[in-house]
Design a protein around this nucleic acid. Structure first.
Length: 673
RNA sequence: GCUGCUGUAGCUCAGUGGUAGAGCGCGUCCUUGGUAAGGACGAGGUCAUGGGUUCAAAUCCCAUCAGCAGCUCCA
């Protein structure tokens, strides 16, 4: 008699010996077909495994749909990969080999570095190992033995990990497959045959335990699926995503240019890109005006004293462009016999005069606030500026529009009373909501950064912090969207709310941010006169709903896959003549539409219509207006939509009205497929 | 910043020690065609930069600059 207990708690009894597959069959033919393996008391077993008779056993039948199935298989595949690498390159040191979104990796250290040229050999070896069909066998060892096992294997990273990372574990598990033995928590698939299709993807450096001061290992990225079809689909998806990359589209659509001669991470906006950026600025400016913001302009540099007061210099000088040192001051130092080394030391200590390219806008805005005496009646003061800032980002970090060295924040600083804080935070969130809403961006996450209760690095009164944190929570709630609360993620000067989106290859980027600041008002000694006729310290809010124009537009290009909504599109429509005979009519329509405020261009080349359409489509022109003799006769344009194709002939006035209403509504249209 | 890969025509790329190629784009001409590529001819390259090895370097070596992937970082 065999008794199994299924995950839902139900018991099933069988008169004779049965296999996992038999149980699956008894539940349903579909399940029997989809079953990959079984799990008895959390231990994976093959489908033909005969279930022990007697006492009831807990059985779970694993199918593809099981959220852990793919992960388990991939992890086993990681073992196979590590084993293959060890066979090919003797003396390999293994580190960690977890699964990740879309695949898995294994960190290794080899005497001679692996390159992508080794991939075919590794994949071939993996196929051989899988064909051997040796099971993954679990071995549990007491702590001391485990360390000795790893020492015998000459796996120093594993030894260190047991001694430090797993210091609290008394017993450790290993998995053995043939000659390959690895410290591993498991679980694994019952047989390597369950590894369907796999592929090595890339290789890159990674620090041991993520610590820059430790050994740098080689990280082998790979992926695996149960079927070749799924793998192919996944790889195709990756290819598709690459085509959406804003760096590729930015070049193809001529939106921006980054020039070697100008400098790394410094964006040159082309006319088309500038247009999009300007439209976005106009859009947000309109809402700023409604919320009672005042627009200001401030210069791109400021005296070092300003940043010494704010605390940014010399503290953050590693991420700033080198200061512009006063010529006179420099020659004075030279006369005193100051060497380059000494100059550098002066800079490190902040004991130097000169100017800094502004790394943020707040100090300038603060000085504007402080330039007048303020009464509580004046508050909140909201100063906004599309302020360009410069930061010396690490060279390896820079790329495209998402991480640059010069960028323009849609910045503003609000000077508020404690009582006003909550309401003003809600106003800031409102702006973010407006932006994401207008773009049809729903796929973003919200993080509320709170202080770490165990740390003393924070400035400001803890009671006020509690109020500010609560205000942030309440503001975030107005989004009507889930948000995470992350203790320890606050800045030292105040709690914050961040908005994060993913790019086309899954990297996360912070866009908008709203931050409360108790520090800078203190450092600059800001005051306003309260109703009690006494001076009070305002609280500052830093906020940038787009984050930076560069990063936002980078993400936006990918979000729209280059197809901007009509109101943002640099070229909204293009007149295509069927033949040279219609050029005159085409130009008439062109000027008519342009006079109506529509951004159109004409394609009057002696090309075939098909070629012109293809070009317009590839340039992602929202609408093409085809004009031929028939249209000239009827005063129409034959309109072609980039999404829905041919819409037929309509009068020019009607086309204009269609454009205008779509622009007014800021309609976001996407391919429905 | 670190590790690895890459840098050839405006773009995408081929060329692996013997003096530079393709497709697209661009220009001219032909073609006058109604919804995703009509045809012909032509122009265009200090092979990223600077050194080195060699009789000879786009090709091999070193450095620098830049790009890509990942790691680390991001007030």
């Amino acid at each position: 008699m065999t008794t199994v207990k299924l995950p839902d708690g139900s018991l099933k009894e069988f008169d004779s010996a049965v296999s996992v597959k038999d149980v699956a069959k008894s539940i349903g033919s579909r399940l029997a077909k989809d079953a990959l393996w079984g799990e008895i008391d959390l231990q994976p077993v093959e489908l033909d495994y005969e279930i022990p008779q007697g006492e009831p056993v807990n059985l779970k039948i694993i199918t593809k749909k099981d959220p852990n199935a793919l992960e388990t298989m991939r992890h086993s595949c990681a073992h196979v990969m590590a084993r293959a690498v060890m066979r090919i390159k003797p003396g390999v040191q293994l580190a960690f080999g977890p699964t990740i979104d879309g695949g898995f990796y294994y960190d290794v250290e080899c005497d001679e570095p692996l390159t992508e040229e080794d991939f075919p050999a590794i994949e071939k070896e993996m196929a051989k190992i899988i064909a051997l069909d040796e099971p993954f066998e679990r071995l549990d060892r007491p702590r001391a033995d485990a360390i000795q096992v790893c020492k015998d294997l000459k796996q120093d990273f594993k030894v260190e990990h047991i001694e430090t990372g797993l210091a609290d574990d008394d017993s450790l598990s290993f998995y053995q497959q043939g000659e390959f033995l690895d410290l591993c928590r498991g679980p694994h698939i019952p047989s390597p045959r369950r590894i369907g299709a796999f592929k090595l993807l890339s290789i890159a450096g990674a620090y041991w335990k993520g610590d820059q001061s430790r050994e740098q290992l080689q990280r082998l990225y790979a992926t695996a699926f149960f079927t070749q079809a799924e793998l192919d689909a996944h790889l195709e998806l990756l290819e598709e995503a690459k085509k959406r990359d804003h760096r590729v589209l930015g070049k193809r659509l001529g939106l921006f240019h980054i020039d070697e001669m100008v400098g790394q991470g410094l964006v040159l906006w082309t006319p088309k890109g500038s247009f999009v950026r300007q439209k976005l600025q106009d859009f947000i400016s309109e809402h700023l005006q409604r919320q009672g913001y005042d627009q200001v302009f401030t210069p791109h540099i400021g005296k070092l004293d300003l940043y010494k007061t704010s605390g940014h210099f010399p503290y953050y000088q590693d991420s700033q462009y080198t200061p512009l040192v006063d010529r006179e001051y420099l020659s004075q130092l030279a006369e005193e016999g100051c060497t380059c080394g000494e100059l550098s030391n002066l800079m490190n200590e902040g004991e130097i005069e000169g100017y800094l390219l502004k790394p943020m806008n707040c100090p300038h805005h603060i000085r504007l606030f402080a330039s007048e005496q303020r009464s509580y009646r004046d508050l909140p003061v909201r100063l906004s500026e599309f302020g360009t800032v410069y930061r010396w980002e690490q060279s390896g970090e820079i790329g495209g529009l998402t991480r640059v060295r010069g960028f323009t924040q849609d910045d503003a600083h609000l000077f508020v009373t404690q009582e006003q804080l909550g309401q003003e935070l809600i106003g800031c969130i409102e702006l973010v909501k407006i932006i994401f809403g207008a773009m049809g961006m729903e796929d973003y996450t919200v993080r509320v950064g709170l202080r770490d209760p165990d740390s003393s690095k924070y400035v400001g009164d803890p009671a006020n912090w509690d109020l500010a944190e609560q205000a942030c929570r309440e503001a975030a709630q107005t989004l009507g969207k889930d948000f995470s609360e992350d203790p320890g993620e606050a800045a030292f000067y105040g709690p914050k709310i961040d908005f994060v989106v993913k790019d086309c290859i899954g990297r996360k980027w912070q866009l908008g941010t709203v931050q409360v600041d108790y520090n800078l008002p203190e450092r600059f000694g800001l005051e306003y006169i309260g109703s009690d006729n006494k001076p009070h310290r305002p609280i500052m809010i830093h906020r940038a709903p787009f984050g930076s124009m560069e990063r936002f537009i980078g993400v936006l290009i990918e979000h729209f896959a280059g197809s901007f909504p009509l109101w943002l599109a640099p070229e909204q429509g293009r007149i295509l003549t069927v033949s040279d005979k219609s050029e005159e009519y085409g130009k008439r329509v062109e000027s008519q539409m342009r006079n109506a405020g529509i951004r159109v261009k004409g394609d009057y080349r002696s090309e075939k219509l098909g070629a012109k359409i293809r070009d317009g489509q590839l340039e992602m022109i929202p609408y093409m207006m085809i004009v031929g003799p028939r249209d000239a006769e009827n005063g129409t344009v034959s309109i072609r939509d980039r999404i829905d194709g041919d819409l037929g002939a309509i009068p020019v006035e009607e086309a204009i009205a269609k454009f205008q209403s779509e622009v007014a509504d800021k309609t976001v249209r996407r391919k429905s497929s």
